[in-house]
Structure formats: structure tokens, C-alpha cells
């Protein structure tokens, strides 16, 4: 389903199918099991909940996706993202936080860092001679 450029929606938007928005939406968008695409002309000021969110236009508000958030080149998100997978293209704008809610991979407890122990507190000075890395 598409919401066209001339459409303005204020309020709560719920759906059970994939949705592409080219217009303006303010409020809340919920597509829990489906893909939401914010088209090039889409302007969203809303809390967004979906399975996957693809952003080519502008989103102001928090975005929660159970699968993936994909901000494409030229897309813009001002808000916090919660999603296990996040892709942000070169040329995309993002300001906010990203929480990828890692599942099934326990973070390292302090004692397991092993050889990579925390750096010493005493200042140390080293001189490195970096060279551009070749493939």
C-alpha cells in the first residue's frame, strides 16, 4: 500500500501489510510484522514500530524494528533506533542512539579479556611509524 505525496496523516497508523509513505505522517506508526518504507518524499514525525524500516526520506522520532532498519543514501533519521540490524549508507544523516540489542552473544566479562587487559594508568608514550596498508 502507498500513501501518496499529497496525503497528510495525524494520529495513529496501524497496518497488517507492507506500507510505503511518500506523504507526511505525524503520530505513531505500527506495522509490527511488515515493512515500512519512507519514500524519498516521505516526512515522518512519529514513533515507528515495524518489522523492517527502510528510510529514503526524513524521519523525526524513535524507530523500533524487530528485524532491520536501513537508512539509505539521502535518508535522514533524527531519533533513537532499536533494532538487531542497522544499515546506514554513506550520505545518510543520522542523529540519535543505536541499540542493536545483541541476542545470544554474551558480552565479555572483565576477567575474560585476558591478554588484552585494560591499559595501564601510567602515561606511556610510543612512536609508531604507520604506512598506508596495502591489500
Amino acid at each position: 500500500m502507498n500513501i501518496g505525496k499529497s496525503v497528510v496523516i495525524k494520529g495513529e497508523l496501524n497496518g497488517s501489510e507492507d506500507l510505503t509513505i511518500e506523504g507526511h505522517v505525524e503520530g505513531t506508526i505500527q506495522l509490527r510484522d511488515h515493512v515500512l518504507t519512507i519514500g524519498l518524499n516521505g516526512r515522518i514525525k512519529a514513533q515507528v514500530f515495524a518489522k523492517a524500516v527502510i528510510v529514503l526520506g526524513e524521519v523525526t522520532g524513535n524507530v523500533t524494528a524487530s528485524d532491520k532498519v536501513d537508512i539509505r543514501d539521502g535518508g535522514s533519521v533524527d531519533g533513537d533506533i532499536i533494532s538487531p540490524r542497522v544499515a546506514i549508507a554513506e550520505g545518510a544523516h543520522f542523529r540519535g542512539s543505536v541499540d542493536m540489542q545483541r541476542k545470544g552473544a554474551a558480552p565479555a566479562p572483565p576477567q575474560s579479556v585476558g591478554k588484552l587487559a585494560a591499559p595501564p594508568e601510567k602515561p606511556t608514550v610510543g612512536v609508531q611509524q604507520p604506512q598506508p596498508v596495502r591489500a
Binding site: 591499559p119 606511556t124 608514550v125 604507520p130 604506512q131
Partner: peptide
């Protein structure tokens, strides 16, 4: 803050 490590690179 405290300087913990400092590296001077050739670049």
C-alpha cells in the same frame, strides 16, 4: 582525565 596512552604517528 588522565592520559593513559599516547602515540605519535608518522602521519
Amino acid at each position: 582525565l588522565r592520559v593513559s596512552e599516547s602515540f605519535l604517528l608518522q602521519n
